[in-house]
Design a binder for these strands. Sequence first.
DNA 1: TACTATGAAC
Length: 786
Amino acid sequence: MLTVLMFCTHYSTKNKKRKGERENWRSGDRTPSPLPSPRRRLSVMAKICYQILKYNGQGAMAWKLNNLSSLTTNNQKFTTSEIPTCLVLKFIKHLYSSSTPHLECVNLGHGFNSDTFYASLIDNSTHEIHLNQIHSRIVVSGLQHNGFLITKMVNGSSNVGHIGYARKLFDEFRFPDVFLWNAIIRSYSRSDMFGDVIEMYRSMRWAGVNPDCFTFPYVLKACTELLDFRLTRIVHGQVFRHGFRSDVFVQNGLVALYAKCGLIGNARVVFNGLYDRTVVSWTSIISGFAQNGEAIEALQMFNQMRNTDAKPDWIALVSILKAYTDVDDLEQGRSLHGCVIKMGLEHEPDLLISLAALYAKCGQVTVARSFFDQMEAPNVIMWNAMISGYAKNGHAEEAVNLFRDMILRNIRPDSVTVRSTVIACAQVGSLELAQWMDDYVRKSKYESDIYVNTALIDMYAKCGSVESARRVFDHTSHKDVVLWSAMIMGYGLHGQGWEAINIYNAMKQARVCPNDVTFIGLLSACNHTGLVKEGWELFNCMKDFGIEPRNEHYSSVVDLLGRAGYLDRAYAFILKMPVEPGVSVWGALLSACNIHRHVKMGEYAANKLFSLDPYNIGHYVQLSNLYASSRLWNRVAHVRVLMKEKGLSKDLGYSLIEINGKLQAFHIGDKTHPRAEEIFDELQRLERRLKEVGFIPHTDSVLHDLNYEEKEENLSIHSERIAIAYGLISTAPGTTLRITKNLRACINCHSAIKLISKLVAREIIVRDANRFHHFRDGCCSCGDYW
DNA sequence: TACTATGAAC
């Protein structure tokens, strides 16, 4: 109060200055101007100032409304219901700036002081400032103890998103009735502050006020959100005791609550007990079934619903669709789609989005796209469904193009869009694109979004620049376990096992607890670097963190041991596994047998693989290579027959290189490029120089077919070599060449590229199917460990 | 004076 008095004194002494300042705020100056002072001391205005200051903390803000001069409606009369908000506000402003506000108010008619008038003002308010002013008027009119009006005020405050103001209003009211209690409970519910809902509910009961049929829906919703089973039981008991066993709103709340808690049986009992079922009751039980993975039950319920008076709407369908999307059930989704058409709901935008999401997730990108194209104005979520659908199904370029489209059309991407696009960029593998995307993120508001940054780290690692990945990592201030793990993975991919371990140690220092994924990254980093001892130790300390190893972890260890030549240990390790060994485990053993030419064990592993994963060509090729390296030609032929029987043919190898932002693909012996002649000249030149320095091709790999490419007499025309030659003639000396290959690099090319990097003094970065190879000055970052 | 259900991206 002291502040207010000072405030008023202050302004009455500076009365002369006032006029100029008023001009100022009227002309649109946004800095809060001082309040005009009342001409008469101790006027009504002082009270108003007080209220505004108290409830808003920014009293001057209240005076920033304009167009004051146009109000000349003193003699005009409105009934309360027809007063438009703008006029009301003009009126209030006029009232406030007038020298005799109270009198003018009276002049305007009696209706302007009634509670219905204020109720209409409150209902029309769209901003906290309006409410502040109305509240001031209420206080001035002596209506501050009117429970109805204060309830309205509380509701109004929560509608404009000001829960703190609502709470202040509530706290100042001495004896809140059930309406006011409901209003404050509702306010918390609307602000998703469910803990407070329960707290207020408790206080309400403590104050001896009985909850009514409007109280329980909010309380039940809060129980649903908090997933507090103990509380649920208590509240259910109270519902029972207060006699709301047949109130459909309350009972609907209970159905939803039990369904969300996973107690679908209880939900069903409550639902069956309802004799008056509304759309909401049906939707609650249907989505309950859908969320609990009982899609068939949900659909049956939906069909039942269609035979009732409750007109089914699309909401229930959305939750059933979601259930199908979650389990990739395209067939059921399709039949539901038919249902949607039969019901004439196929133009409902939200259903279209759900359908598109289903089709996109199940790989039917074209169908999803047709929905997308059908929509007049697809929203962000629709764009996101398309972008991530494309990215997930190997159409990464399409995803990026869609993102560009989106920007061109001025549709604001959200963090999910950005993240999905970054993931797509990672798949494309172009560093230039990666940098473009990074730039975009830096300029957007998602610069410090941890999910986006995690995706960026992964993207840079996959696009060949572990340094850039590290830069993003260093610039992210809050690091969670996923971000740390992404960085560890990145180092692993580039064969920098020690860096990965350093990061892991730093992570522990930062008191971030590793998870299963962290260890997958660490173990694969050890694999790619040949750190057998370290990998083994890391595997063994997983249990210290309470992490149960999965197949991925076991296969890493098998790989680690097997590659280092400890085949028997690897085999014994598999036998001791507490879970059934999967494809990755036997695959690791087979490839280790391949390296060390252990035919017997390799055959054993291959047979396991053939029964677990019969249509994966890789296993057959591996076995065939194993036989070939042991010169068991009959068996090689036998494997070939097996492959033919299964109708499997080998993947064609190709390499990509990006020159000036354009991706160029080359197949083996590819002469289709316009500059093919120059390319092959360059290849021959390279070949000559290799011979000069004494390079001897490993002819073995022709037999081995290690990289799955067709058997060729001339190893120098493997696709990565052509890409390198093209890169050399198309870029300035010293430029780093970045190549992506769909298969593993063959040992011959690997050795040749090492030398080439030295001969042409270039860094050559090759991303093969497994990892990155950085060739520089005659060496490869993988240390021949791949 | 007012109430409950629901979903799409990751």
